[in-house]
């Protein structure tokens, strides 16, 4: 018993969980449903590991106390190993970690979410939260950008989102000329520019590649948005997720404990740090 207690206190030790579902989203992304029962904020992440391959931080893209969903893109050793797992397999998880979206503090607002590629994953967690607390929020506007129609993730959920929310989807290139989900060719920032909303009673979440986030922020500023209405997600190399290994440090802030979601005014002066 004593030995077991010690193990619980050791912050580096993950625990095994079962995979309830494996769903392939695109040729290089998939969503795992894991039987981890935990309370968490949308935007928080967990450290997922496959022994022998290592650990990777993955954001939680669901809003449930009974399980977590993880949308994963195959870009590194760990994520490629995770792609080989299937329903019934086990994986190791510790967490959740970090600060997510401040859902409690932004009740009554209209929410704009701007996502690029797999940056849509943490936003899906926030959408899930809104679905579970629909009366607390006004209009929801989704701006989702992908490289091509083949890269669109969460196609199953998008059918539902289309009915409930204002949604605009763009693809950088539509090489096959394939029609898909009302996606327009162009960048998501173009769709944003063409929209007529103002900053009144609005809060914006942005998650995507740095260049897309920068472009989106510039347009929002032109539309009169203040820095403290915008929340962005940072991506950094991470090992400990406890705020001590320092790899994810941006200036004095730690992506793993002070973020990954930051209010824009907290981090706007940080360049490539």
């Amino acid at each position: 018993m004593k030995q077991k207690l010690k193990q619980l206190e050791n912050p580096y030790i993950p625990k095994p969980y079962k995979i309830l579902d494996f769903h392939r989203e695109t040729f290089d992304t998939f969503t795992l449903t894991v039987n981890m029962k935990t309370s968490h904020e949308p935007g928080q992440f967990v450290q997922v590991s496959v022994p022998g391959f290592g650990e990777a931080p993955i954001s939680i893209c669901s809003d449930s106390k009974d399980f977590i969903e993880l949308n994963i893109r195959e870009v590194g050793n760990v994520t490629r190993a995770l792609a080989k797992l299937r329903k019934g397999d086990k994986l190791l998880v510790r967490g959740p970690y970090g600060k997510g979206y401040p859902m409690q503090h932004i009740k009554g607002n209209n929410i704009i979410m701007i996502g690029g590629g797999c940056g849509v994953a943490p936003l899906k967690g926030a959408i899930g939260y809104i679905e579970n607390h629909r009366a607390d929020f006004n209009d929801v506007l989704l701006y989702l950008g992908y490289r091509s129609p083949d890269d669109i993730i969460f196609k199953r959920e998008m059918e539902r989102w289309k009915k409930e929310y204002h949604i605009k989807v763009t693809v950088d290139k539509n090489a096959h000329g394939k029609f898909c989900y009302d996606a327009k060719e162009g960048f998501i920032t173009d769709a944003l520019k063409a929209s007529s909303f103002t900053n009144e009673n609005k809060v914006v979440f942005i998650c995507g590649p740095p260049i897309m986030m920068k472009g989106a922020i510039d347009i929002l500023k032109q539309k009169g948005f203040h820095d403290d209405q915008i929340f962005i997600s940072a991506e950094r190399l991470m090992y400990c997720a406890l705020g001590i290994c320092c790899h994810c440090m941006i200036r004095g802030k730690f992506t793993c404990i002070d973020g990954p979601v930051f209010r824009y005014d907290e981090v706007k002066d940080f360049k490539n740090d």
């Binding site: 022994p51 022998g52 650990e55 090992y239 400990c240 290994c245 320092c246 790899h247």
Partner: peptide, 16 residues
């Protein structure tokens, strides 16, 4: 200086 990284090492006999 206390920065660190974490990696997995596996044996050649049994990769598990």
């Amino acid at each position: 200086c206390y920065c660190f990284e974490i990696h997995d090492n596996v044996g050649t006999k049994n990769p598990k």
